[in-house]
């Protein structure tokens, strides 16, 4: 494989993972799984950042991934706290039941 093809395959895997995460967010109704799918999308983007960082031999992309991971950890903690609070109020984590903002 030449470097360009190499990069293309990594980007393709990244795109496919992002697509899976997006479809998951659209089809699942369990808030925890929707949240997991968002994590999957974040990881897919991380993969493409690392692939470009490796292709261009530039550590900037790697640093960006490092910060994305830190923010993702913070986001996971807050998101799961929100899900726990939601479960306390509604006895459910089904996002079809949480629809005050819908109308």
């Amino acid at each position: 494989m030449n470097p360009q093809e190499h990069l293309y395959y990594y980007l393709a895997v990244s795109a496919a993972l992002f697509m899976l995460g997006m479809v998951g967010v659209l089809i699942r109704r369990n808030a925890i799984i929707v949240f997991l799918c968002i994590e999957l999308m974040l990881n897919a983007v991380n993969l493409s950042l690392v692939a470009f960082s490796s292709y261009l031999n530039d550590p900037t992309g790697t640093m960006l991934v490092f910060f994305v991971m830190c923010v993702a950890a913070a986001e996971a903690v807050v998101g799961l706290a929100i899900i726990i609070a939601m479960f306390r109020n509604r006895e459910s984590v089904n996002i079809s039941d949480i629809n005050i903002f819908k109308w």
């Binding site: 990594y10 925890i32 949240f35 997991l36 994590e39 990881n43 991380n46 690392v50 692939a51 960082s53 490796s54 790697t62 991934v65 490092f66 991971m69 993702a72 950890a73 996971a76 903690v77 799961l80 899900i83 726990i84």
Partner: peptide, 25 residues
């Protein structure tokens, strides 16, 4: 891809910490 540091961080932070948090919840 040669990103050794990120691979380790990925296992510790994502596959380790965040997923355990999900399982706990």
């Amino acid at each position: 891809l040669g990103a050794e540091f990120l691979a380790v961080i990925q296992i510790i932070v994502y596959a380790g910490a965040i997923m355990v948090l999900f399982l706990f919840v």
